[in-house]
Design a protein around this nucleic acid. Structure first.
Lengths: 347, 347
DNA sequence: GGTTTTTTGAGGTGCGCAACTCATTTTGAG
DNA sequence: CTCAAAATGAGTTGCGCACCTCAAAAAACC
């Protein structure tokens, strides 16, 4: 009837008795302090295992005294998605201070590898953990590895550097996101055949190129009636995006689908509206912002692929905290999902 | 450049000095203990406000000594979705025991109001918090209110009792879920016109009837070319669902869409396949299970509306804990989203 | 005024652990 | 066997708070 999910509450003293050693030795083992014979280490660890002992986090946290400090290295400039992440960090402030956690946001130019690498190096030693929106570049990779070697916990945020030794990546699988966008465009276009346009910031950005890859993959394999036009580059700017798309719409009357890979959504929407084809073209883009929300409600956009910025902010903090405490990470909880947002499930 | 998000770490002693009172009085105010003049209460609270003071949760937790106990009242029987929730609670066991939290699952017949009410009453006093998959019925409402009056924190899980005084509801907006399903069916059907079938467990279940309501709303207002057939009741059982749907498919050759509101998915899928119409009919259902995952990959199902069971399990625990501690709830974090799951964004 | 009642102060104890010191025992090398 | 090095024991302190007691002061009452 009633099924209990937790172990009984032992303490370190119990473990010491079980292992036949003193508290001091258990403490040495628990914190990897030197001066314990391998055999003794084994005995202590066995006692811990045997009893499924979990140190009381509250007691551990209290005894540490020192507050933990985390740094969030984020792009400077008016990127709405990044601003949302910062806003959600701000909403956590009561939660953070009740746990004596200090979170600082460091703005930098994440698109210049050397600047980003320098910003990371500058953090060395001052923080228990660092979350970084990282550019995948050898210099950045080296900076991340240096931090890790110095004992700092590092998670990459939104954009990953898989080749580094970062402890964790908090963000979505961008290939799958592109595939999802492709499936949506294809399915929503329906029986019609025609052309599909892609507007990206730049194909040099890892996340953008991965999304395009996934998108194209699905289009080729599952929607043979739709042909994908060459990728337009709008540099995530409204003006340029509008301009290049307007030109394309003028040249092709049979465009039935549009995938906007990055930002510049305002410009894309205007080009569509100005051409009077807002309702005929299936338009799928990314992220839920004030703008995309409006476009979805108006029916100009048909779906938005979204990664929940609040979730990303909180997951990054929780992962850094778990790493610092030596706690296991709840992978399922920290995994960022690819949300499909349409008018009726707008959050 | 670097923006700090946390306040400095004051202690209760600092607050006492600021307010010109003793530690004992601050403690009395903080815990609503009697014997403090209203004016003094005001002075203490002002000092707390002024300094944005947050008690150190770790210290508070440690000093309490007593472990907190939560009960999860869940339906007995082989409901896969509920089993997933229980499984995710199990995955949290290390997290829970590191915080000295006891979570117990109480299985009961949630479909019989008097049995459910009795199960709830039986918990009175033994738990700090209760999460319950609740039937919306006067007897259940009274039982919930009794628990609340007795000082137990109560959250409703998956299925709400809005008229009760429960502290929180962890689950989705089922009307919006139905609307989302409707929009998906309508959009995925595309240009075709025809009939749309609905299979539900029972229209007596609040969540099912709300989903049907939302679904019908969208169909009527946005897809006039599609006509909705009367709701079939399959009692969430495979056999019966298959039977009633097979009959309907036989009578109507022009069914282009199908919405399965509850469980019984296996039966629904078989009826479709047996009629040889698995690929022609747009099929939208609920929840990501081993079965729906396979059906999505096979292309039999086109989309699943999902509420993340892991998220629900963790959110319920976190909300109960926050309520018990008197911490604020991170509403954004605990809100359960309506996930649209298609083949390419399967979690 | 005196008396009762209410309010406040002062202090102690312990929660479980981290982090340390210093003495003592054990071990291994020569 | 001797002596230094390594390993271990025993103990202390303090983190910030909850929870308690008892005495003293202040306010309210007759």
């Amino acid at each position: 009837m009633a099924d209990t999910l937790t172990a009984t509450a032992l303490t370190l003293k119990d473990i010491a008795r079980e292992a036949g050693v003193s508290l001091a030795t258990v403490d040495r083992v628990l914190h990897n302090r030197p001066g314990v014979r391998p055999d003794t280490v084994r005995r202590v660890k066995a006692a811990i295992e045997r009893n499924a002992f979990q140190p009381h986090v509250a007691a551990a946290e209290l005894a540490r005294s020192r507050a933990r400090r985390f740094a969030f290295v984020m792009p400077a400039g008016p990127n709405p998605f990044m601003q949302q992440i910062e806003a959600y960090l701000g909403e956590m402030s009561a939660w953070l201070s009740a746990r004596r956690l200090g979170v600082e946001v460091v703005a930098t130019d994440v698109f210049d590898p050397s600047v980003l690498a320098a910003s990371l190096e500058a953090l060395s030693g001052d923080y228990d953990g660092v979350a970084v929106v990282a550019l995948d570049h050898p210099g950045v990779r080296a900076a991340i590895n240096d931090l890790v070697d110095g004992g700092t916990r590092v998670v990459t945020l939104v954009s990953d550097v898989p080749s580094s030794r970062r402890h964790h990546y908090v963000g979505i699988d961008n290939i799958a996101a592109g595939r999802t966008a492709g499936a949506l465009v294809g399915r929503l276009v329906g029986q019609r055949s025609g052309k599909v346009a892609i507007v990206a910031g730049s194909q040099g950005l890892r996340d953008h190129s991965e999304r395009i890859f996934g998108f194209s993959q699905v289009m080729a394999s599952e929607f043979p009636d739709l042909s994908v036009l060459p990728v337009l580059e709008g540099r995530d700017e409204d003006g340029r995006s509008e301009q290049v798309l307007a030109r394309l719409l003028g040249r092709h009357a049979d465009i039935v689908g549009l995938y906007n890979v990055g930002a510049g959504t305002q410009g894309v929407a205007e080009a569509l509206s100005d051409a009077g084809r807002g309702k005929q073209v299936v338009f799928v883009g990314h992220d839920v912002t004030a703008l995309t929300r409006r476009l979805l409600l108006q029916g100009v956009m048909d779906a938005a692929i979204s990664q929940n910025p609040g979730h990303e902010a909180r997951a990054a903090v929780r992962v850094l905290l778990a790493l610092a405490r030596g706690e296991p990470i709840l992978r399922e909880q920290e995994k960022i999902r690819i949300d499909i947002v349409m008018r009726d499930n707008l959050p």
